[in-house]
C-alpha cells in the first residue's frame, strides 16, 4: 500500500506539466492582425497634430511600422505630452502612457490584447521652443572665471533638412567639441533636444534672443540630462548649468547628475518690457570628458 504523499506529489506535478504545456501551446502574444486592425482605426480617426502615445515602450516599433508616418520624431521624442490637445493611446493593459496620467478617456476600444483610447486635454501654449530655434542661437566658448574673450562656435555641415546620405549632420563646432540638435538618448528614452559636448577647461554658452510677445506671461520649462549611455558610463561627476535671464536680471544654477533622467525644471521669467529678451545657458563640468549635456526648453503659458 503506497502512501498518500507520492500520489499528491504526482498529481501536483501532472497539473504543473499540463499547465506549462498549454502555456507553451497558447502563449501570450501580440497578434499582427490586432496591430493592423488597431492601426487602421487610429489612422481613420487621426487629425494633424494628434499625438500617438504607446505603452509600454517596447510595443512602439510595431505601432511605428503601421503608423510611423503619423509619428514624427518630434512626437516620439517629446519631453512631455502637455502641448497636444488630442492623444491616441495605444497600450497593452494595464500599462498607460505617462502622457495621459490624470486624464479620462473619451473612448476606448480593444483589439485582441491591445487597447486604443482617445484623450482630450487643454494644451499648454508653447510661445518659444529652444530646440526648434537652435539655428537662431549663438554658441560660443570661454574659459570660466576669467575675462578671456569668448570663442565663437561656427556652424559646420549641412543645415537641418538638407542632409545627404554619408554626410554627418551639421552643428556648431567649438574646438574639438560640438553642439547639435538631435534625437538624444537620455535614460534610454528618445528626447528631442540640443546636445552639447563639454570641453575640459571651457564653458559653452548657448544664447537665445526671444521676442517680447513670446516672453511675456510665460515661464521657462527646461529639461536636462546626459545623452548617450556609453558616455554616461564613463562620465565622472555632475555637469553645471547656469541659466541667465535678461543679462543677469535673474540667474539660476542647476546641476545634472550622471544617472539622472530628463529632469524638468520650471523657472519664472523676469517680466520686463523689451523688444528682445536674452536667455543664456552656460554649460560646464569640473570633469568635462564624456559629458554630453542634453537639453530642451520651452516658454509656456
Amino acid at each position: 500500500m503506497s502512501s498518500l504523499l507520492p500520489r499528491l506529489l504526482l498529481a501536483g506535478v501532472a497539473v504543473v506539466a499540463v499547465w506549462e504545456s498549454v502555456s507553451s501551446l497558447r502563449p501570450p502574444r501580440i497578434e499582427d492582425s490586432d496591430v493592423r486592425a488597431l492601426a487602421a482605426a487610429v489612422r481613420a480617426a487621426h487629425q494633424p497634430g494628434d499625438l500617438i502615445a504607446v505603452a509600454p515602450a517596447w510595443l512602439s516599433p510595431l505601432i511605428q511600422r503601421e503608423l510611423g508616418d503619423l509619428m514624427p520624431v518630434e512626437h516620439l521624442a517629446r519631453a512631455d505630452g502637455l502641448r497636444f490637445a488630442r492623444i491616441s493611446e495605444v497600450s497593452l493593459p494595464p500599462f498607460h502612457s505617462s502622457d495621459v496620467q490624470g486624464l479620462s478617456s473619451d473612448e476606448s476600444q480593444r483589439f485582441g490584447s491591445l487597447r486604443w483610447s482617445r484623450f482630450h486635454q487643454t494644451p499648454v501654449t508653447v510661445a518659444f521652443d529652444l530646440t526648434e530655434h537652435f539655428l537662431d542661437a549663438t554658441v560660443s566658448q570661454r574659459v570660466p572665471g576669467t575675462d578671456a574673450i569668448e570663442r565663437p562656435c561656427l556652424w559646420t555641415g549641412p543645415l537641418p533638412g538638407t542632409e545627404l546620405p554619408g554626410i554627418a549632420r551639421g552643428g556648431f563646432s567649438c574646438g574639438s567639441t560640438r553642439s547639435e540638435r538631435r534625437t538624444m538618448e537620455i535614460d534610454y528614452q528618445p528626447r528631442r533636444g540640443i546636445v552639447t559636448e563639454l570641453e575640459p577647461g571651457q564653458q559653452t554658452l548657448l544664447r537665445f534672443s526671444i521676442p517680447d510677445e513670446a516672453w511675456q506671461g510665460t515661464t521657462l520649462h527646461l529639461w536636462l540630462g546626459l545623452h548617450d549611455y556609453h558616455r554616461r558610463k564613463q562620465a565622472q561627476g555632475p555637469a553645471t548649468v547656469m541659466v541667465d535671464l535678461d543679462d543677469g536680471r535673474a540667474k539660476k544654477e542647476l546641476t545634472i547628475d550622471v544617472q539622472q533622467g530628463f529632469v524638468h525644471h520650471e523657472l519664472e521669467l523676469p517680466q520686463l518690457r523689451a523688444d528682445v529678451h536674452h536667455l543664456r545657458i552656460e554649460l560646464s563640468a569640473q570633469s568635462a570628458p564624456h559629458h554630453l549635456v542634453g537639453l530642451h526648453g520651452e516658454l509656456r503659458r
Partner: peptide, 21 residues
C-alpha cells in the same frame, strides 16, 4: 534614434518579432 535622425523617418519597413515582441 540615430537611424530616425539620419533617415528622417520613424517608420520601419520590417519588424522581426517573437510572439509579437
Amino acid at each position: 534614434y540615430w537611424i530616425w535622425d539620419a533617415y528622417g523617418t520613424t517608420k520601419p519597413s520590417f519588424v522581426q518579432t517573437h510572439l509579437g515582441v
